[in-house]
Design a binder for these strands. Structure first.
Lengths: 194, 194, 194, 194
DNA sequence: CATGAATGAGTCTTCATTCAT
DNA sequence: TATGAATGAAGACTCATTCAT
């Protein structure tokens, strides 16, 4: 019981901090502002997190983990490659792009903190696995095609993340729906080619 | 007459601050760290800039302006559309992607400061103009094709910027040359279509 | 439970700041000088007051409030008008004139801070009430006699305050006792007239 | 010629500084604000005054000197004691009370700077001389009547100065004309007595 | 255990005065 | 001589974290 309540409070801290960090930036958000919003005493924070920075890290890592867990779950339930792609396009990616607070934080903070490179690596691995499942032959690590794929994934992923963030903050003339259309087109085109 | 304001010193402040802000972040760089590195007295900073934040803004705006000036100059000297694209791919974009410090700063700071949206807008205008010069008919503002183009530009631009930044900071397995190849392929493919 | 905010420390800050501000002026007294004198860390000041200026305001408002509270208390205990005047002359005014630090601060700082006008207004109200209690008829707000009384109160009050301040700082050849004699004479004369 | 122009500039600095110091306070007025208002270079100030504080002192001393010079001149031209008092009430005092900027500065700054005590002393001497001219016998320095007169002068003078300042800054319900009426009444009453 | 006052190194910025030009 | 950039000590204030209660 006590544990459950603790976890709830921990989650509440995370949620509130996430909104604050995303809108004002990590450095422009003070711990006291956070506790004011939460209406809890300052000391409380430090029973859940050893430092302000670890709150930031937890937001990023746990947010990303949630996404990955959902992805894995939905992907294993999919019958075919087509179904898997459909899930990607209709379920997982929209969920990621909707979480602009998480995206903002990941993109704004230092690489050491967000560990974007690790996240991209795992994404590349995922795509490569899908390729293999699709029956395409594996690429040797020296193959220039591998580099091309890797490059494309990085550019598309980062471009989409950043675009999703900007969409909600600024009048760019496009919407999140347009981003999803872009992905759908992209996947269809790529599949037709291969 | 008194000393004239030393524009070289102003530039030195800008250059040093740029490197510092890019590597450590704006908030993790103190004014005293900056003046230590420059070996000038604190007050000097404030004869050239009214605040720390205005240094940041000058870095972004002047850096971007330099790029645009170079772009405009080189573009007007190009004889054909092909030559213009070649300049884009071989000269201007490489220069932008090499300036990872500038990119880092633009992408990491708040929208109000970096005004990324304005920069993207001017980029879209540029591309639309190139299209017109190429003899393609103009798109009405309601045309879904316009939205598609807009979306693509945003994604590619942001993706490339971010990828260029990551390349030099983290071992992602790709290089800036790969990014340029990506662009080259992209342009050729798009031109073939049109 | 954490430490309770120490009201004694707050009072000590107020007392020390009052002496410093009165002798050196608000602007010539730095926060670090204040904390040095108090032998407490800088931050402590800011757990009790939001800013240096609010210390000044607290000194003035609380000092004035103390005086008014004492005045009200003693006045209600007085049996007759004569007793009330006696209290004024023998107890409350001497106490005010003795607090030359408070007077100095009130007179030296800006009107927005000291709100001298409000203080004078409440004094005029007090005197008018005493008049009424004495059975004198009320003056209509257009009556020139009201303006005369108002003018006299303002001049006497400000003159006495300022004189009290100067007495202790400079060799003017008069003492606080002389000021009290002046008041006593004044009141007797005025009462005889009315 | 050159000297005349210099004196003009010096006077302009004094006039501008006086208005600024009176309205914002000495410490809240920076030298650069002053030179901005004057539209002259910073260095210029220091060819006329050795420091910011000496500007303040010049404002006070020269302002006071002007008043005294005018007073002496007009007083010696007066035929009778009545004429002298009339001059005091109708000419010199109104001029002093109108110069609320000067009064503000004198009353707000430290005693060491404004040397209020010296000014009061010279005022007492003046009144004592008038008394002597009026044929009243001189008072020995031990005479309690001397102390009474001295006290009264101090209180009236400081009270009127302060009241004049407050009148123009705050809605106290009285005007400078009321102050002059007060003085007139006072003098008539006192003369009737003696 | 929960609390929030206490801490002090560190933040950005100011500004009267000087002096190289 | 006139100028205004240069200077740097000093200014008020912040804030993540600790620890006495």
């Amino acid at each position: 019981m006590a544990r459950a309540k603790d976890q709830e409070k921990r989650q509440l801290i995370l949620t509130t901090a996430k909104a604050l960090f995303a809108r004002q930036g990590f450095h422009n958000t003070s711990v006291s502002q956070l506790v004011n919003q939460l209406a809890i005493p300052v000391g409380s924070i430090y029973t859940y997190f050893p430092s302000k920075e670890e709150i930031l890290q937890a937001i990023i890592e746990e947010g990303w983990q949630d996404l990955k867990t959902a992805l894995d779950q939905e992907l294993t339930q999919a019958a075919s490659l087509e179904a898997q792609l459909e899930i990607l396009v209709s379920s997982v990616l929209p969920r990621l792009f909707q979480d602009t607070d998480l995206i903002s934080i990941i993109l704004s903070e230092g690489l050491e903190i967000s560990r974007l490179d690790e996240k991209i690596d795992s994404l590349i691995t995922l795509v490569l696995n899908l390729r293999k499942e699709a029956g395409l032959m594996e690429l040797s690590s020296a193959d220039p095609a591998l580099t091309r794929i890797r490059t494309a994934i990085i550019i598309y992923f980062l471009g989409l993340m950043n675009a999703a963030r900007l969409c909600t903050r600024t009048p760019l003339g496009i919407s999140q729906a347009d981003l999803l259309s872009f992905i759908r087109d992209l996947i269809h085109r790529e599949l037709a080619l291969s």
